[in-house]
Design a protein around this nucleic acid. Structure first.
Lengths: 215, 215
DNA sequence: CGGCTAATGTACGAACTGGTTCGTTAGTAG
DNA sequence: CTACTAACGAACCAGTTCGTACATTAGCCG
């Protein structure tokens, strides 16, 4: 039971305070956007004060960048955990598509942050040292699957890994990113839990069908 | 040469002033989001003053709603202009998909406004009387195409019009909505003019392939 | 041409907001 | 136990931002 934190009950705990600020900030930025988020509000929802935000992060923008970095870490890890060994190409790409779909629908905050970051033309993402050019493992994974599919003659030969990833991402992101406008305009909530399994199957069907059609 | 506007040279022209405000506001809101947009900035980019924005529109929020309404009018009209008579079901749905793709890639401001509106959970869209429940013509169009396809036995029979519309919209919206994050992370600009024809063909292939696969 | 109203411009203010200044306290090294 | 530093809190400040009060003018109608 020798807990590694010898001073777990500290009132002053830098790591904990920073983590709490990041948690609250993630929610606030995802909720209201960069300009809409209020530093005072983030501070108020924390057990600490605004002073600490500036003490640990330097400012609103740096805090936002840290939030972005932490959010992207989530998918990176999910992507690296994907294992398609033992699956034939079609099963493999379907599996990846479904996992991507599941991850996105379960991480609305992340998708919202990405939307927000695009409104700002990814200027903060570009400023991040960790994210700007961190290799993306999915592309390699997809490349491998596509190669196998081509070899076996079951996939079209003009399919590109990045393009396929975009196709999958499109359908995985849309329900979350456009939930509200789509929902009010068409009277159907794309995130309705009752339709989730249906849409998961749909992404898979879509990619596999696309890849199987002639080059 | 008898110009129809008898008072074209008026210094005071209500209609013109309002239209100019809306044009500038559309750009400003699409560029910086609702919270990020500055009423003073919109006024400065106009030939009139901030006073007029409040005189004609009432406030920042009402102006934003008008901007939204005008932006949505664009697709509504484009959708109603679509004509698929004489095309077989596969050709018809491909045509619609390509038109949707073209429209979205050519109207980045609109897509950005939609993204922004989703960040705000479509609260402004809901407040709009003209938009909240304006029937969307595409759905009927797609329904018709799907029905014909089913009758001819060339389309799967479990495809739903709204779902198919979502599939097409996903792929048409993504390159515009996520251009910058996707571009920096994968080193490929999804709106690169050189790849546009390729992606247009890809949406078509995707939907048709999906619809042709077994139920 | 006189007067009436829509249209317009200027200046201002109250509230907000990111960021800072100054001072305090908990925890720890020696 | 003492001294030193990381961690922290409260109040404050300067610049912004939406919105408005007040004064003014263009253009039309009779």
């Amino acid at each position: 039971m020798s807990d590694q934190p010898p001073k777990n009950s500290r009132l002053r705990d830098a790591v904990r305070t920073q983590a709490e600020i990041l948690d609250v900030a993630t929610r606030e930025f995802a909720e209201r956007g960069y300009a809409g988020a209020r530093v005072d509000e983030i501070a108020a929802l924390t057990r600490t004060t605004k002073r600490m935000i500036y003490y640990y992060f330097g400012g609103k923008e740096q805090l936002y960048i840290k939030v972005l970095e932490r959010a992207y870490t989530g998918i990176r890890e999910a992507e690296q955990a994907v294992d398609v060994t033992g699956l034939d190409p079609a099963e493999a790409i379907r599996h990846l598509a479904e996992l991507t779909f599941d991850h996105h629908t379960e991480h609305a905050d992340f998708i919202r942050l990405v939307s927000i970051e695009n409104i700002h033309r990814a200027e903060h993402l570009a400023k991040s040292e960790t994210l700007a050019k961190a290799g993306t493992p999915v592309i390699d994974l997809i490349s491998g699957i596509l190669a196998r599919g081509r070899e076996q003659g079951v996939f079209r030969d003009d399919a590109d890994a990045v393009d396929v990833h975009m196709m999958i991402s499109s359908f995985a992101v849309f329900p979350v990113a456009n939930q509200h406008t789509f929902g009010t305009l068409f009277g159907r909530d794309p995130l309705d839990p009752g339709r989730r399994a249906h849409y998961r199957r749909m992404v898979g069907d879509m990619v596999v069908a696309y890849l199987r059609t002639g080059s």
